[in-house]
Design a protein around this nucleic acid. Sequence first.
DNA 1: AGCACGCCGACT
DNA 2: GTCGGCGTGCTC
Length: 736
Amino acid sequence: MAVARIALPVAVSSTFDYWIPDGLALSPGAVVRVRLGTRAQLGVVIEMLATSEVARERLHPVAAVIPEIPGLSRDLLELADFVASYYQEPIGLVVAQILPPLGAGSSSLRTRDAMEVALRLTPKGRIELPAALRRAPRARALFTEWSAAQGALLSAWQQARLPVHLKHRVRRWEAAGWVEPAMPDRESSGPAGCVDRLHLNSAQQQSVDAIVEARGRFAPFLLEGVTGSGKTEVYLAAAAQCIASGGQVLVLVPEINLTPQFEQRIATAIPGRRTVTLHSRLSAGIRRRNWLLAAAGDADLVLGTRLAVFAPLPRLALIIVDEEHDPSYKQQDGVRYHGRDVAIWRAKQRAVPVVLGSATPALESLMHVERGRYRRLALPFRAVASARQPAIALVPNRGRVTTEGISPELFAAIGARLARGEQSLVFINRRGFAPSLFCVSCGWRAGCPRCSARLVVHRDTHLLRCHHCNHSERIPRACPECGNLDLLPQGHGTQRLEAALATRFPNARIARIDRDSTKRKGSFDAVREEVTSGNIDILVGTQMLAKGHDFARLTLVGVLGADNALYSADFRATERLAALLFQVAGRAGRAQLPGEVIVQTDFPAHPLYRALDAHDYRRFTEALFAERRAASMPPFAHLALLTAQAQRRDAVDSFLAAASELGRGIARGSSFAVEVFPPVAASLARRAGLERGQILAHALERNVIQRFLPRWREAVMTLPGRRVRWALEVDPLAFA
DNA sequence: AGCACGCCGACT
DNA sequence: GTCGGCGTGCTC
């Protein structure tokens, strides 16, 4: 009896076998519907077998093959296999990440059938949401069906097979921003691949040549270019050439916010080519449409966040990872993969060049260059010849008269920019008004009831908010401990800075950018637009501002509160701060106007600030390398982190103690050179009412820890669960 | 992840 | 005496 081995989106590392009914054509990669327990599930055929080890009477049949999407290609199945085994994740969950959204309701037979009804109507051009769907009981299901129907409508729209009244409906969707405007036909939109629209300097041209020369083989490049040196032009020129010779290009960016401006530059530089985006904020219908365009080879360029690394790309010719050092490439929940690292594996698998670009490369990438595994491409100068490196000023806080934490130097510099009609950016990595509320009389501080953290004062909403669990409460009028009325907001956040600047410069137009101010969709773009068109004088914000945005009239960057990272328990904190400072410094004076950077710090002699002052990132990384080597930390070692959480502290502690002991036993017994450390409480020991703890496993060799991890994970799985939720994270970015 | 099975407190 | 709480474990 022919059997299909199927990966299902459940948190079990094994696959499930199903028998194949006569006449059902099936091959590996096919997306199928099967029964699992009591409900229907979508799954992907991993392999075909003549027989199963599972008793025949326990096997169910494969219910159907899903026709809407082509099966996963062989290379995507291999990719899934690699990600599952490297990151110790269940194959079914990895496969679920790779598949496009098939409608959230796909797990239930009833909504699935309903969706098929909606889709079956397409070829006739008579598309309506079935009345039954409109009255679907659950709002979520309705939304799912709605987006599925949208997808169907849109594909018909693109094939110009819609009756007039439905065309109007799609136009309304486009106008309302619910769907992306239909893409131009490739033929109808001008000459393709106009590389010569990009004016490259010689360093850029050399980089492009090196990348293009490497076509057709695995060749990792580290494109190291100071901010403003024109990395994007290199990406675009290389991409244009790869596309011109019939390839597809994958471009990864760290943040959704960065996709629109990138898209625009692509459209200008490579006209007449189809670019599709893939990121989590797209509706299910659009994401599926774009995935299908990539799979069919109709999209020439796929631009997206880390999840786009799983896009199907039959003609893949080049992968680009912009801002490769950015920690957002690491997924922190679910399947915990690193987008950049998966991209490199994929480039190797498909034998294509991969370009990692950054002004502040990750130590891992620098080490690969050092060891000759990556080729370094350098863009040492700013692309606009007249744009000079900004002047750096390090001004102390301590022993100074500051106003709301802003030094006289910074105030004066902002004032000068206002007088000249130039723009300033003040950066502080804390949102809210003040990071804590303090009673001057008894020393009480507002703490989160569910986390071991302080509550943050948000003055605009008159709330105290926990930034870890979102708990919020009204700001108390008096101290709950002693009744004292004198409660002091302590420390500074973006809101407080904004207020202080508004007081000092009442006529200045000030905009604040942080997670609170940009919650609404599109608001970030709106502010960026305002800044570009000169309607903003002072920008206040968090690290959101540091990344990849180019403002021509911005000539001053002020940095507050940077020293905090220097005390952090997180071993990567100073590396991240360095990347951030070099990035924000790069925001100043990008075009014709000279820039200035003012960093308020009490440790001007710290190697990081010295390096910043000298505009020499590599000088700082030399110091970091020495530190990491001495401590045997990445990139000189490989780590895995077992995290656990539970209601009760003792449950966490005893679970982790047992897990740690098991790990040591395995390492000893099989003479793996792996060190398993004793459990420690997480730096945020309690979060959202759950006690947290962790164990670090450490090895000098990647393959050693890789061989150790599956055995450890299996052993830990046998531990009595006792209400402990745990996860194993490979290559963790942070722990403490 | 769901969803059922299973063993302990407030209702007809 | 049941209804139902969610804690635990299985799904080919």
